[in-house]
Write a protein that binds this DNA or RNA. Structure first.
Ligand SMILES: [Mn+2]
Ligand SMILES: [Mn+2]
Ligand SMILES: [Mn+2]
Ligand SMILES: [Mn+2]
Lengths: 244, 244
DNA sequence: TTGGTAATTTAGTTGAGACTAAACATAGCG
DNA sequence: CGCTATGTTTAGTCTCAACTAAATTACCAA
């Protein structure tokens, strides 16, 4: 095999970050405009235009001038590889170094560009082929498929419903620290007690502890509805569960 | 505090690698010449000259034209920080991922440029403040001091002497794989049995197994003489090596 | 003392990736 | 239907880090 090596030397750190940004912007709404891309990358618009031209020349995307940009198969493949690297690093740093969940994104943002196939294989072995990172984001498989499961958020739950937290926003450290103090990280069992009218706050229990949170925050916490397996009297201790 | 941040944005990956190279070349013989540096970095001589000019302008080294180069305090500090990063990554990858000893150097060569203070602190905690990496290379301390202990090599031992392997060359994967099959990695207990005349091979036991190795290889294996402590009362207590 | 050789530096070029200023397209509105 | 605001691209510049070719220096041997 190996006719088309992934290691075009043209794929620099910068190119990787652009492709990843385009991929995620594409996921949350159609054609990606220059201004959106420039803002996300923290560069001026002409810088984005010029990078787009290079990426188009390299076959990573198609560019319709003044309209927007769309990744090719080749571009998506690389974007997914970087996202896989990012989330594997997050999972590994959390597992092996106990790096707090709010610092994972920043570290992985640099490390994602530095993960050899060999190191990746070691991580996968040690982590037991993980499917999700500590934020609950799905880890793309090595062949480029992603779990596209869509979860409801806390505001979607009916009053009194039980659920398990499955995914939280990953890029806001302050928010993540707050969620940690509330015990509202992936794996937590919650019960939605009530919601105040007029868009008011929600009351819920997280692993048995009662908490009050705002609507907007609740809308960002994705959950899997259903009671946790009420097996024998288990302590709802702080054990971390892994799922398959 | 924080008047002089380490994060001059002028310290790029490339600058870090040059400073590290100059530091290690400086250790193994006086003034560093342009050609030596260029060869080590795998670049043409004019590229080295031009980088040297920039490093001199940044206060990282002093350059005597046509003569050579010498790191300043500022330059040495950064070189030692990168070397610390390199060896910490090696120790960590070996510990947490069981990365084979012959692959550590290549991985650390990239990762050394991507180690935040926070991540470094986590590693130090998990590894228990390690003083040496898996090759036996000393890890510079955070404040820039290095254990400069000098060990004899296997050829320096008298016949019949016992010793413990302390340090092996770290940059040659094939050599490291060979040493691993021989059981001649740091920590191994050896006894030098005999040496053949006319610069012939040496016979020794490594953790009890008899091996024959060439003179040249033996000269690259650094050891600490003395019987291992497992033998009762073989020798009076040996004192720790002091540093300079 | 001088001339040849090897090492080093200078000069000039390239490409990546950023920037600002200016030109240009698109779409919304009168 | 055309004007204008907004967004996008073009044009030109900058720095970093590499290159080749040419000039310069150091050193050594005759
Ligand atoms: Mn990144
Ligand atoms: Mn994540
Ligand atoms: Mn390096
Ligand atoms: Mn080492």
């Amino acid at each position: 095999m190996h006719l088309m090596s992934r290691w075009d030397p043209e794929v620099s750190r910068s190119v990787e970050d652009y492709l990843k940004a385009i991929y995620t912007l594409q996921e949350s709404g159609g054609a990606v405009r220059t201004s959106t891309l420039a803002e996300r990358m923290g560069v001026a618009a002409p810088s984005a235009t010029s990078m787009v031209a290079r990426l188009a020349a390299g076959g990573f995307l198609r560019h319709t001038p003044y309209r927007g940009v769309e990744l090719t198969e080749k571009g998506s493949r690389i974007a997914l590889e970087i996202i896989r690297h990012h989330r594997l690093w997050e999972a590994f740093l959390h597992h092996a170094l106990d790096v707090p969940i709010d610092q994972l994104n920043e570290e992985a943002e640099r490390l994602e560009h530095v993960l050899s196939d060999e190191l990746e294989a070691h991580m996968v072995r040690v982590l037991g082929d993980p499917t999700h990172d500590p934020h609950g984001d799905p880890i793309p498989s090595a062949d480029g498929t992603v779990d596209s499961a869509v979860y409801p958020n806390v505001t979607d739950l009916p009053d009194g419903a039980s659920a398990t937290v499955r995914r939280v926003p990953s890029e806001d450290p302050a928010l993540l620290r707050y969620l940690k103090t509330l015990g509202l990280l992936p794996g937590a069992s919650i019960v939605l007690r009530r919601r105040e009218p007029f868009h008011g706050p929600l009351t819920l229990t997280a692993d048995g502890v009662e908490r009050v949170i705002g609507r907007e925050l609740a809308g960002q916490i994705l959950v899997e509805p259903g009671s946790p397996p009420e097996l024998p009297r288990a302590h709802p201790a702080k054990q971390r569960r892994r799922r398959g």
